[in-house]
Each structure stands twice: as C-alpha cells, then as structure tokens.
Deep mutational scan, measured.
Amino acid sequence: MTTFKLIINGKTLKGEITIEAVDAAEAEKIFKQYANDNGIDGEWTYDDATKTFTVTE
C-alpha cells in the first residue's frame, strides 16, 4: 500500500485527506468519490513525485 494525499481547494471546503491505496488509480477513484459526495466539482491535478492529488474549484 502507498500513501496518497488529496488537497482540497474548494469554494466552501478546504483541507487535506490522506489515504492508503494500492496505486494512484485506486486513490483517484476514492478521492473523486469523496469529492462527489461532498459536492466538490473542480479541476484535478496529480503529482506522482509527491503522490498528491489536488482539486480546485
């Protein structure tokens, strides 16, 4: 398992979430479901060097 981080730069929600996932594809699926569940819709980026996803509304 690898640790992945999501940085949320939303209009109403900001913060960071860290999860353990098998790979970046699994982490992205989990993070996008979390964002969808919380009404966050924005532009996604991923930095493989730091294993960090960012979503900006």
Rank of each mutant, 00 (worst) to 15 (best):
D48V: 06
E26I: 09
K32E: 15
N9I: 10
A49Y: 02
D23Q: 03
E57D: 09
G42A: 08
E26A: 15
A25T: 09
T54P: 00
I30F: 15
K14P: 06
G42I: 09
A35C: 02
I19K: 14
T3F: 15
N38W: 06
E57R: 10
I40E: 04
D48H: 13
F4S: 01
Y46V: 02
I8E: 01
A35D: 00
E26L: 04
E43W: 05
E26R: 02
K11I: 04
N38A: 12
I8H: 14
I7C: 02
I40F: 09
K5F: 10
K29I: 06
K29C: 02
F31E: 00
Y46D: 00
E43D: 08
N9L: 15
D47T: 04
E57W: 13
E57C: 03
D37K: 15
E16C: 03
L6F: 10
G10M: 05
L13T: 15
N36E: 11
A49S: 13
E43Q: 06
V22T: 09
D48T: 06
D47I: 09
I17P: 02
T50Y: 08
E57Y: 07
A35W: 06
K5G: 05
T3K: 04
A24N: 13
G10T: 09
E57V: 05
E16T: 14
E20F: 02
E28D: 09
T3H: 12
Y34V: 11
E20A: 07
F4M: 02
T45P: 00
I8C: 03
T2F: 09
F53K: 00
I30M: 05
L6M: 14
A35E: 02
N9A: 05
T54K: 07
D41R: 12
V55H: 02
K32H: 12
M1P: 15
E16Q: 13
N38V: 02
V22G: 06
I8D: 01
K29G: 03
K29L: 08
K51F: 07
F53V: 01
L6T: 02
K11V: 07
Y46A: 01
I19P: 00
T2S: 05
E26P: 05
L13V: 07
K29R: 08
A21G: 02
N38D: 05
N36K: 13
L13S: 09
E16S: 14
N38R: 15
T2Y: 12
T52K: 08
N38S: 08
